[in-house]
């Protein structure tokens, strides 16, 4: 088994990060292109704890090294991951656990990601992945498979951070514009009252 771990700080509030997290893999993220589809399978709020539990199917397309393709006798290009996430609004944490659906007889990948607030303006991201090659046979081959995946995790983590930063920035801008528009609508709606009040004031 090999372990990959990583920690990052985002200069955005936990509320912003946990919201933007739902669209981490949208077109604003030009870096994480290996994620080609994200589907929500189920979603529920626990009535006792208020925890939001979501199951998502993540579809990735990323080619495997040639030696591994040869060994498996396939392209290995498309793979699926089941991500189960738990948003705890009381503790203000998002915990996401992911497991590979594809090639699960060959490898077992378990990833845990947690977002928690550092303060009102910063959020910490921690990630840990455990990678275990299950195939029988030489230890050397198992090690190579595990090392390949650790390397892939490291590359995707760098891209993931850059891509998510872009999503966070866009989300903040869109939310600000939305609020501005709502404010304008309210002023417009109030305009006749203001005019009437002004007219009445003139008459006095």
């Amino acid at each position: 088994m090999k372990v990959f771990s990583n920690a990052e700080t985002f200069n955005y509030s936990w509320e912003e990060v946990s919201t933007a997290n739902w669209r981490k893999y949208c077109p604003w993220n030009e870096k994480s292109t290996h994620v080609v589809a994200v589907d929500t399978l189920s979603r529920s709020v626990d009535p006792d704890t208020g925890i939001l539990r979501t199951e998502r199917l993540i579809t990735c397309r990323q080619s495997a090294p040639d030696w591994l393709k040869k060994m498996m006798g396939g392209a290995m290009e498309e793979s699926q991951v089941l991500e189960t996430s738990y948003v705890d609004p009381a503790r203000r944490t998002v915990t996401m656990v992911s497991a590979n659906l594809t090639w699960s007889n060959l490898i077992n990948v378990q990833e845990t990601v947690v977002y928690r607030p550092l303060n009102a303006h910063q959020t910490q991201f921690t990630q840990e992945a455990q990678i275990t090659a299950l195939c029988g046979g030489w230890q050397r081959i198992k090690n190579s498979i595990e090392d390949t995946l650790v390397k892939r995790f490291r590359e995707n983590a760098v891209k993931g951070k850059e891509g998510f930063e872009a999503v966070l920035e866009m989300s903040r801008r869109v939310f600000a514009e939305e609020r501005e528009r709502e404010k304008m609508m309210m002023i417009m709606a109030q305009a006749p009252n203001i005019r009437r009040a002004a007219a009445e004031a003139d008459m006095l």
Partner: peptide, 9 residues
């Protein structure tokens, strides 16, 4: 595949 993964989760 999802059925198995849910069991493991």
């Amino acid at each position: 595949l999802l059925e198995d993964a849910r069991e493991d989760n």
